[in-house]
């Protein structure tokens, strides 16, 4: 009973306070600009408790944009390993979901999920800030349902 209550409070806290770290795995930069736009006062993600953190140790959600290039693959893995459990990954942009227009290039591995597990996919080229917010909120709501 008590354990259940503690778990409930923990889930609540996790949903209310997702700290993110943004990592460009090889995007054309348009998706990054949209992510930054989502963090500006116009959209104000702090309403949902989202804070942009500089170090993977503090972050709960890894926001990746762009296809995984062969050069960045070990680094992406390393950043993922540096994060502390529980952790989630959001793939932002068509490239991050599948490889997009870059798939099949000689230097491209593919989408983010070819390297690390991904919790949410947000397609779009580039994704609009509203879509990013919507995707993030959907990920958080799915946490609540899973319990």
């Amino acid at each position: 009973m008590a354990i259940k209550a503690v778990k409930k409070i923990l889930t609540w806290a996790r949903i209310k306070s997702p700290w993110i770290i943004h990592f460009n795995t090889g995007a054309c930069n348009a998706c990054d600009i949209e992510i930054i736009a989502a963090l500006t006062p116009r959209y104000d993600l702090e309403r949902f408790g989202v804070l942009l953190k500089g170090t993977p140790r503090h972050a709960d959600v890894l926001v990746c944009s762009g296809p995984v290039t062969k050069e960045v693959e070990p680094r992406l893995k390393r950043i993922y390993e540096q994060m502390v459990e529980p952790k989630f990954v959001i793939a932002v942009g068509t490239c991050a979901c599948t490889g997009g227009v870059f798939s099949g290039c000689y230097n491209i591995k593919g989408g983010i999920d070819t390297v690390i597990p991904v919790s949410a996919y947000i397609p779009g080229c580039p994704v609009s800030p509203k879509a990013i917010i919507d995707g993030t909120v959907k990920l958080l709501v799915s946490l609540e349902e899973k319990k």
Binding site: W12, K16, S17, P41, E46, D60
Partner: peptide, 23 residues
């Protein structure tokens, strides 16, 4: 000119950090 965090935000941050794995 932003809305800002809800009133329980620091508490939620604190509890969430307490619930993370040790590293």
């Amino acid at each position: 000119n932003r809305v800002g965090p809800p009133w329980f935000q620091p508490l939620a941050d604190f509890i969430k950090l307490l619930g993370k794995a040790e590293l």
